[in-house]
Design a protein around this nucleic acid. Structure first.
Lengths: 256, 256
DNA sequence: ACCTGAACACCGTTCAAGT
DNA sequence: ACCTGAACACCGTTCAAGT
């Protein structure tokens, strides 16, 4: 995708620039097309993320991609941690939020969870950043607000809703990480789907070969434990959580 | 804890060793007391983990602690990833497992979850290693076997139990990470409890200052969202999951 | 078989110096 | 105010060489 930045003048329309006269040395490298901004840093970091995963997003790599040195980034971002949080918030902006319909709050909450999963997993292992992080970015807060609005509209008490966003968030982060960590391990250049298939097959073989006297239950359900149906597992956990949350709904609104 | 390794002979009982004669140079450093083994590598890595967290566990650091160079570790461990998995399995060995009592399976499953949480959180952010990892170590498999045995004893169908270990595992990993990530951020040397307190207070302040027109629900429940009761949140999620799993129990065993 | 020194190709962050 | 080169103090892993 990225093309090499030529040192000389572009070969398009006649350039006003003259060749540097002898004795005066040219600037070391062509300056970046557009001045460095926080947005440009975040966008570049996301491009690296999507192409090669979170591990590849280093200060040096992002700087290189922008045609500068790593020290230049520190004028726009306080460090690597902040850059990662800014990346996550930018990703969270892609999540489409529902308008609460109190009658359908459970289905809407599930739908929102599926949407979060879709967006997260479409950006490699970005969910790793979310794990154990208090959401503070504007878009991350929009998502939390939407979840809380759905639950409150459905009559879930404040205290329960407060704990439930947390539990739901943990579930979504863990699921997205689980789903991307295998792919992250795939050697670059190799077909990730084929790699995944073989990777999974190896585990099935391993579990089957386990000693049945030490693991009597486990060895009796290898088929169930190596089911590659990601979506089914996600729906199972999501249903558990939403049903559990719904069990706390106070059917009658506070009297008075 | 660790004391400096003196270059000269020990000052205890008379040593059989003579001083190195002039012209013959002594070995660069005293050899490690005990020959390198995989166990020694794992134990040293765990000491570094407990003292300074997972991030401090580097090949070079572990090697240094053992009085050797990083290359020496590769005879006993295939790399950093394997070392981390071996550390996790060693930690899993500390988890005390219940003997299944079918009548009390739900309470036993909760008890086991609490025990896993206790052991994980007592080893800093070790749970990060577990996240997204298929358990293959013997002790990790013991823990999975115990969970499955409890559920099967309680009448949970195989397919449900297979998905439930996964969901429960995700929950436990995410919770343990959530609980340790703040502490990991505490600057070394500072009282982590005081740091935690202040850290949390800042978030409460931040949430309170949020614009109420964009975040009407969220700003109306700042108190509920910044409740520092970790144990309460854990019990809430655990109860949701176990109740959900129990809802799939087939009351009558298969007829015939 | 095990261990080692040295090297390779990287990291995040700081800082004095420039414009 | 923004950007830079250079340096500092690190990484994981490989490999030829030693014992």
């Amino acid at each position: 995708m990225a093309t090499a930045r030529p040192d000389g003048p572009p070969s398009g329309p006649p350039a006003p620039e003259l060749p540097t006269p002898p004795g005066r040395r040219p600037r070391k490298a062509a300056p970046p097309r557009q001045p460095l901004t926080q947005d440009a840093v975040i966008e570049t970091a996301l491009r690296v993320l999507d192409a090669e995963g979170l591990e590849a997003v280093t200060m040096r790599r992002v700087a290189q991609e922008l045609g500068t040195g790593p020290a230049s980034l520190y004028a726009h971002v306080s460090g690597k941690d902040e850059l990662r949080e800014l990346m996550l918030d930018r990703v969270a902006a892609e999540i489409r939020l529902p308008f609460p319909d109190p009658a359908r709050w459970q289905e809407q909450l599930k739908g929102l969870a599926r949407e979060i999963r879709r967006v997260y997993t479409s950006h490699r292992d970005i969910a790793m950043v979310s794990m154990g992080l208090v959401p503070t970015g504007p878009h991350l807060l929009d998502v939390a607000e939407a979840q809380l609005a759905l639950m409150r509209a459905g009559g879930v008490p404040k205290k329960i809703a407060g704990m439930a966003v947390d539990t739901l968030g943990m579930f979504l982060d863990a699921d997205a990480i689980e789903g991307t960590v295998y792919y992250a391990k795939a050697p670059a250049g190799e077909d990730p789907h084929a790699f995944f298939e073989e990777y999974f097959g190896q585990f099935k073989e391993y579990f089957s070969a386990l000693p049945a006297d030490r693991y009597p239950v486990l060895t009796g359900m290898v088929e169930e434990l190596t089911d590659p149906d990601d979506d089914g597992r996600f729906e199972f956990g999501l249903d558990l959580l939403v049903r559990g949350i719904a069990s706390y709904v106070e059917d009658e609104e506070r009297p008075g």
